[in-house]
Every structure is written in C-alpha cells, then in structure tokens.
Design a protein around this nucleic acid. Structure first.
Lengths: 128, 128
DNA sequence: GATAGGGGTTCCAGCTACGGGAAGGTCAAG
DNA sequence: CTTGACCTTCCCGTAGCTGGAACCCCTATC
C-alpha cells in the first residue's frame, strides 16, 4: 500500500507519515521503486499514533506509548504514569485558559465596541 | 535605563525585549555605547505587551492592539473585535482540552497501574 | 513512441515566540 | 590593571508539522 492510501486509511496527512518515519516513530519497508510499502502492522501503528496525538500526547510520549504497546512484558503502571502526567498538564492548561477567558470576557463585556476611542480593554492593558 | 533594568521593571526577560525590538514591536533609542536606552514610554509599551501576551494574545494581535492603543482616533469596535476573536479561540481550545481531559480521565481511572501488562489505555489507543 | 496526469521521492524553508550559548565590547570598583 | 557584571550581535534549537521546488515512476491515451 502506498503512502496516499495509508494516509486515507489512517487519517494522517502523507507529510505527517513521512515525518514520523523520519524521526523514527515508525519504520516502513520500501518497494523496489523506492516507494514506501505500508503493511497492516504499519497502518495499525499509525492509527495508534493518530489516536495518541489526538489526545494531545507529545511525540516523545507517543514514542514511549508505542514501545510499551509493543512490549508484552510492560507494566500498566508505566502507561498510567505517562498518561496521568499528560492529564495533569492538560488540566493546568485548562486552568490557565480559563483565567484568560474570565478576564477577556469581562473586558469584552465592558467594551461598548462603537466608533469612539474610549476602550476599557486598552485601558486595562495600559493601566499604570 | 538599560535592558536589565527594563527587564526587571516589566517582568519580561531581556531576550524577549530584544526580540520585540527585532520584530518591530517596539523601537528603542541607543546610547552612544550602543546600549539600548529605555524611556518611560518604552517601559509603558513593554508592560502593555507583557499584559497582552499574558492574556494569550499572539504577537500580531499585540502589534495591532498597541497600534490602536497609540491611535487617539481608534474605534473601540476594532479593539473589541480582536479581543472577541481571541476569546473565541480560547474557548475553543478549552473545549478541545476538556474533551481530551474527559477521555484521559476515564482511561486513567480504568487502568489498574500495576505490574501486569493488561492496560485499557493501550487497548483504547490500539483498538481495531 | 510521445505525452499527460497523478502518483511517489528528497530536501529546504518557514511557522510561534522565544531561549541558550558563544564571541566580544563596556563600565564601575578595587 | 584586572575582575566581574553588564551589554552587544549572531546563530542554532525548540514541536510538529506544512508548503513548495525539483525530480522520478506508472498508467493511459493518442
């Protein structure tokens, strides 16, 4: 299967698949003409990666998770540790964004948004 | 005032201030020795930028906001439009992160996290 | 056989918003 | 005069791709 088909099958852009191969996330065999030849296991790994990325895992986490996935001797505690750490970071991001959201909402509500220059948003940013 | 003092005063790292100058966000006079000489208005603008960045505005938004800030003829509607658009993006990000959070929480809770290889997290990522 | 198209390949540049570090100039104190 | 703390510029690296150029391959059609 060529890269275009693999892309359709996994939902990943071809460029992304090439990138994953380049950084060693996956290893793909080549046909005699130099084209990548994706096997079912390759598609499976790529789908795994696509899901992990969709959950916000970074590339290095993905690398670790994929290694654990393929290791029959793994401990689920290792998987859980990575996931929990990632979850913590997401929760922190949510908190940060919510704080921004609260402030921005206030400011937007306070601003009349007409043709006059008077603006509480700028006043707040420039105060002091 | 030198860059170190300006950094302390604004809370921005010196590197960041140099970067802002490089991309034309601020223009700073130089002393005869080549050192940047920060005036009060420069500090004021840098503080403005620091606040806008802390609210998550991108650099180009900051550029626009700063221009509006310095334009006595501005319409507050322009400021509000930028801010509302930014707010929308933040809210979307929060939604995305919350979805990840929900899934990840479920998975973490379902995983025993012991020394056995059986793991619902990997099962979910690799399913199909 | 020539050609057109729709694949594929590599490599290089660029994106955001800086941070690290090297190589070197400047200044105040002792 | 030297030391140490500043300052300067310049270049590389970050995460995770994306776009584009230049070129190769395969199939179909004229």
């Amino acid at each position: 299967m060529n890269i275009g088909q693999a892309a359709k099958h996994t939902g990943l852009p071809a460029k992304t698949i090439r990138y994953y191969e380049e950084i060693g996330l996956v290893v793909v065999q080549r046909d005699s003409n130099g084209y990548r030849a994706f096997a079912d296991t390759d598609l499976h790994m790529l789908t795994f990666l696509a899901r992990a990325r969709a959950l916000g895992f970074g590339i290095e986490d993905c690398r670790s998770l994929l290694a654990l996935y393929q290791d029959g001797q793994r401990s689920s505690s290792d998987v859980k540790a990575i996931t929990r750490h990632h979850l913590d970071e997401i929760q922190q991001k949510i908190l940060d964004l919510k704080e921004m959201q609260a402030t921005l909402s206030e400011l937007v509500n306070a601003c009349s948004g007409d043709s006059r220059p008077d603006c509480p948003i700028l006043k707040s940013l420039g105060q002091n």
